[in-house]
Amino acid sequence: MRMTFRCDPRLADHLVRPYPARTALPDWLRAMPTKAHSDIHGRDIRTVKQCPPFVDAMAYGIMIPLPCDIRIEAGGFSWDWDIPEPETAGHPRAPLSFHPAAQFAAAPFANGRSALKFNSFWTIELEPGWSLFATHPVNRDDLPFRLVSGLVDADRFHDGGINFPAVWIKPDFSGVLAKGTPIAQCFAVPRQAPELVFEPFDEAHQQAYAKVVADVLAAPNVYRKHFRAKRGRLTS
């Protein structure tokens, strides 16, 4: 799978490039202890830092970064981003724009609020048959916004930017959303629909199920040691 990112030639030296999600694990996860005391169990138990599916989901795909610092004060958004005028007609220069509340009428996540739009400074092209799934950075409830998920057929739509709408969920937030902050986590997904097959366990699957459950309960790290696939490195 190849993901090709392109940008306006005048902005090439001014943009933060999208980066592998595995390089952007948050500080709170890195600082989390691997074990913590549970009053219910009466002993130390493993935290989600030792849960491969939790961490692998956060580390999967690529992150789209915020191109510059955004200052938020009293509900207002401002920035000081000195970049050249793009050479390409119709290309944005501001990092943010907005969607009126009417565009999200009755959507429960909007709650009647207008939405931000993180403007795109990169086009994204995928190989034939693949689409780009963009969603809020996984397990990142620490961010003061919630991205609205979307699916784009980026094997066909790749000559225009993909913008990323989001709802600002912390109205009392004051400070700076830093340049490079992940605003969207993106995965390439096959567009072909899966074939769904439903079967009851046969004897072999019953035995396999019982063995896996017993192994998981008997020792830690069974999934990590015996089932977790090795992740390939992203290349550029």
Rank of each mutant, 00 (worst) to 15 (best):
R2W: 03
E73D: 13
W168P: 00
R191D: 06
E73R: 10
T123K: 00
S174I: 06
K179C: 12
A89V: 05
I62N: 04
P194D: 11
G90Q: 12
C51K: 01
A107P: 00
W81V: 04
D56P: 00
M58E: 08
M1F: 12
L15M: 08
A21L: 06
P53Y: 11
A178D: 07
A218Q: 09
P200W: 06
W79A: 03
I45N: 05
L29C: 06
G175E: 03
H205W: 09
A218K: 03
D44T: 02
K225I: 06
M3Y: 13
P67I: 10
S114I: 00
M1T: 10
R43Y: 01
P182Q: 07
P171G: 04
T235K: 03
F187H: 08
H91T: 11
N119F: 03
A31D: 15
A59K: 12
V197M: 11
K117E: 14
L25Q: 08
V216T: 09
P165A: 05
R10T: 14
I64M: 15
F157G: 03
D44K: 01
R191S: 09
A229T: 10
A193G: 02
F109N: 12
P200G: 01
A115M: 08
D8W: 08
W168M: 10
P137W: 10
F118K: 01
F5D: 07
A31P: 00
L25W: 13
F173R: 11
V213E: 09
T88K: 06
D27V: 04
K230Y: 05
Q185L: 04
V212G: 03
D155Y: 11
P182H: 11
A214D: 10
H91R: 13
A134P: 00
H14W: 12
S174L: 02
